[in-house]
């Protein structure tokens, strides 16, 4: 396998890791305003308390890896999504500091204000990430110097919005399952009643998005038609999604959570398989596309980066797993809590 493909996979892995991990804490944020009671809200925030900023680092590192391995893509995508990314940053700033600030003061107005910031920020971030992802999947108008020429309104097209809404519902479902895992008693019972409607809402969105993709984005199926082995990915995705309600029905929330994690990972893989070897697809002029070959850093840099990744990633995975292990089990409020 060539270095460019390895880096395509590594960037995809980082983004999938980000979607799975930050996905559940964004989901917890989306659901936050529906949680009643101050202690209950604190429990939910503390369920993600020790891990959320580590989860955001997957995005930071994904962005850094994209910058290092495919600088042309980093430059084109980030400048092309200027206004959308500005808004994304504002939503992410608000949700990050809301987690930290919210419980620092007892005042009701203070906490309610930060609750709104946390929830709206999480919703906005999930929606914007989904819209951006939808646009990358669909392809964007680009000029000969690889600049994206679509404005904000061009990015808010129906297909991208559909992917955005699907992302919000997916993260909300993922977050609800996570909360069922981390809470107990009455709060858990209440959140448990949300899981099934969210699963069905997600399945509805998933079917719609899949239909829209087959209808409007046939290019995403081209690689699979050429190499039918890749059909395993959508089939596994369907199985993972279908398995979620089954596990939840049997009260096996952890397996349900693994299934929804697998579904998120597979959905990212699906788009990756569909785009390869393109990273930013120019639509309608495919000759202006950025591929893993015309956008990459030099082979020497890709090799250096691979050494850095080979040293760093095992370390990261080891202590990340250790930290999730230490904070396993039901969340309880104590003095150190948010």
């Amino acid at each position: 396998m060539d270095l460019n493909t390895i880096w395509f996979i590594l960037v995809a892995v980082l983004l999938a890791g980000y979607a799975i991990l930050d996905g559940f804490d964004l989901g917890v944020g989306i659901l936050h305003l529906f949680i009643r009671g101050d202690d209950e809200r604190r429990l939910c925030i503390n369920a993600i308390g020790p891990v959320w900023d580590g989860n955001v680092v997957w995005l930071v590192t994904g962005g850094g890896a994209l910058f290092a391995a495919f600088p042309e893509v980093y430059a084109s995508a980030f400048s092309g999504f200027y206004t959308a990314l500005t808004l994304l940053l504002v939503t992410m700033i608000f949700r990050a500091v809301a987690i930290e600030f919210r419980s620092k003061r007892p005042s009701h107005a203070w906490r309610h204000g930060w609750d709104i910031a946390f929830s709206v920020g999480s919703f906005g971030a999930a929606l914007l990430l989904g819209v951006a992802f939808g646009n990358v999947a669909a392809g964007l108008p680009m000029d000969a110097e690889f600049n994206i020429t679509a404005g904000l309104l061009g990015l808010l097209n129906p297909y991208a919005l559909l992917v955005g809404i699907t992302t919000v519902v997916l993260f909300a479902m993922h977050g609800a399952i996570y909360l069922v895992l981390k809470t107990e008693g009455e709060l858990q019972a209440r959140i448990r009643t949300w899981v099934k409607p969210l699963i069905f809402a997600f399945i509805a969105c998933y079917v719609l998005t899949t239909g829209a993709t087959l209808l409007w984005q046939p290019h995403l199926a081209a690689n699979m038609k050429a190499q039918p082995l890749w059909f395993a990915v959508p089939i596994l995705t369907v199985l993972a999604v279908a398995n979620i309600p089954r596990e939840i029905h049997h009260g096996r929330e952890f397996l349900g959570f693994l299934s929804s994690s697998a579904a998120i990972g597979l959905l990212v893989t699906l788009v990756g398989v569909g785009l390869y070897p393109n990273l930013l697809l120019s639509n309608p002029q495919p000759e202006h596309s950025l591929t893993i070959f015309n956008s990459a850093s030099s082979p020497k840099t890709l090799k250096i980066m691979l050494i850095i990744a080979a040293i760093g990633i095992p370390l990261v995975l080891t202590y990340t797993a250790g930290i999730y292990w230490i904070f396993r089990g039901k969340v309880k409020l104590d003095k150190a809590s948010y």
Partner: peptide, 11 residues
């Protein structure tokens, strides 16, 4: 520059 930034993320 990207390489240094990515190393910062990972390490």
């Amino acid at each position: 520059f990207g390489s240094a930034l990515a190393a910062e993320g990972i390490f």
